[in-house]
Design a protein around this nucleic acid. Structure first.
Lengths: 341, 341
DNA sequence: TTGAAAGCGATACCAA
DNA sequence: TTGGTATCGCTTTCAA
């Protein structure tokens, strides 16, 4: 390890340029109040000295960390095979990086910790705002952060009163279209492999499926919790495909569980899609790499991330931005869905 | 948006407890120098007041941001389908979170930006140290950060002098074993779908493959750059499988390109593994979800992340920790590899 | 337009 | 053991 050099501070710049510290600050931040000649001189001195403002000094003084927080609650093993959140983070980055913000990312393993981390980030003012992702039915984060008056943005929160700005992408239309399509392909027993029921987005997909089933005059009976994981999807296949009322089509709450379901069904001796059609939700790239290729409801995580970041930064700036609704998710039909024969 | 409350500072705690600020600080940080009774009183006042130290004040004063930086250079589209870095981040988190550190994550799209971001994080002292991942042959980050004397840790840097502590996991042995296995299965034409050649880890896999081929008396001829992406793997399949010297086995530099290769080969009318055996590198979970299941060299990204974080934090503390070498990657044979027939 | 000085919220040194 | 105070590096207000 080499030895650190002494840092160049704004004091050095001011001294070298022969101005007061306040003038140097004003000049460097492009604020009005200094003459052009002074500004130029300060700037050239700063760059000659290789001056880079200290994020720490600035954060303390400006009362802003220039940083936003995202806490992802995921099992380590699942994290590895969950490509969804990469795209979401990409969208966040895309918006915040050009604006000088940095993402503070945390991973947690259980929901108590998740709440704690959010609150710790907020209370210690490590970040200026947080993303509320994967919101639960009675999510402790929401009330606590609202109580603190801390900036936050919700990603697909439940409809109803939500104390923060929110970004939404609806999957309901696409789920209806999926069920309608399956019904037209002569499927009558369409099961649902859901996500954990404490998540708002799980519940929404369940009710969308229910409503869609009723809309085409079918019974919405069989639901198995697939836990949003491929193993959960496999277990769901064991339950559903060896049960009494074997479905001819299955809508899974995400692609990971759909892939698990599909592979397990095939292992059990069924053919996809000849014996059972399978569809997922999310639209991860891997859906195109499995065989048969996976039908899915394609969401736009990157776009969602970008919009969420936009709303969050404007909330941090104290602006009252309107909620953002991005174009609904789209049904993507691939080889895993076919006419019942 | 609710209205923020005024923050409780250490001044409030000190006043309420009837002690000096310095005593309050000493008491709260568990340092020696205050009586037990004082410590208890300060602590109970602090928790009664709901005091949470300001990360900003602390960072400035303690000259430590309690934060480490990771910059991932990835195309947004690829990010979405790259499960590898999730596990790596998981490992980092696992180590740093209990120690009060936070990960600052940035995503970039090109290599100039990547260097800039590292330097910006370092110069502004936004973070206390950075991870040097996916190191390139002549990586500008290394020299610049060394020049700054900024704490960093290398993940699989090239052997030779490297100015920072490093974590390494070798894949060479497993690649040798793979080639040996393929040779024993009667394969003679074993091609390599490499990563972009400017990466150190691409080069290492290429030379491991070369040496392994020579070791079993085979010609190491055909190499195509698969860019570490599934599309790149597909293009490599187009080139290799329709070329003059069609290989009977292919070693791909990562699983993503292996999956792309496999799927494209199948589309071209070849059977895997009957016509061509395919193996990847990384050991991502999705390798088990594709059909045929993918043979691979399984690395330990989470472990790598954890060790890298350990070395980085000790470098930040000024400790001279020894480089860390974790158990070599292991060959995992699955259905995509079989005897030539 | 410029400069002096008061914070921001901690830590840590040094007397008492 | 305790308390006063300088300090970290910046922003911002307020006089001059």
């Amino acid at each position: 390890m080499p030895t650190p050099r002494e840092r160049v501070t704004i004091i050095d710049v001011a001294r070298e340029a022969g101005v007061a510290i306040s003038s140097a600050s004003t000049a460097l931040n492009g604020q009005p109040g200094v003459s052009e000649s002074t500004r130029d001189r300060v700037r050239s001195v700063a760059s000659a000295l290789g001056y880079v403002p200290s994020a720490r000094g600035r954060a303390l003084s400006a009362k802003r960390a220039y940083s936003v927080g995202l806490v992802v609650e995921r099992d380590f093993d699942i994290l590895e095979s969950d490509p969804f959140f990469g795209a979401f983070i990409g969208g966040i980055e895309e918006y915040i990086a050009p604006r000088g913000y940095v993402l503070a990312l945390q991973i947690t393993q259980d929901s108590t910790l998740t709440v704690d981390r959010h609150l710790a980030l907020a209370r210690s003012r490590r970040v200026d705002g947080v993303f509320l992702n994967e919101i639960k039915a009675d999510d402790a984060r929401v009330a606590e952060l609202a109580e603190l008056g801390f900036p936050a943005v919700g990603i697909n929160p439940a409809v109803g009163d939500f104390p923060f700005p929110a970004v939404r992408q609806s999957g309901t239309e696409a789920i209806h279209e999926l069920v309608r399509t399956l019904a037209e392909l002569d499927h009558r027993r369409i099961a649902h492999v859901s996500g954990p029921p404490h998540y708002v987005h799980s519940l929404e997909r369940i009710s969308a499926w229910r409503e869609a089933m009723e809309a085409v005059g079918l019974q919405a009976e069989d639901t198995v919790n697939g836990g949003f994981t491929s193993d959960g999807g496999r277990r769901a296949a064991d339950v559903l495909m060896t049960g009494e009322r074997r479905p001819t089509a299955v809508f899974c709450a995400n692609d990971l569980s759909a892939i698990g379901f599909m592979n397990r069904a095939i292992e059990l001796g069924f053919r996809v899609p000849e014996d059972v059609s399978v569809a997922g939700f999310d639209g991860i790239n891997f859906g195109e790499h499995v065989r048969p290729t996976l039908s899915t409801v394609r969401t736009a995580p990157r776009h969602l991330g970008r919009e969420a970041a936009r709303l969050l930064l404007s909330a941090i700036d104290g602006d009252e931005a309107a909620d953002s609704t991005i174009a609904p998710a789209r049904l993507v039909l691939r080889d895993s869905v076919a006419r019942l024969r």
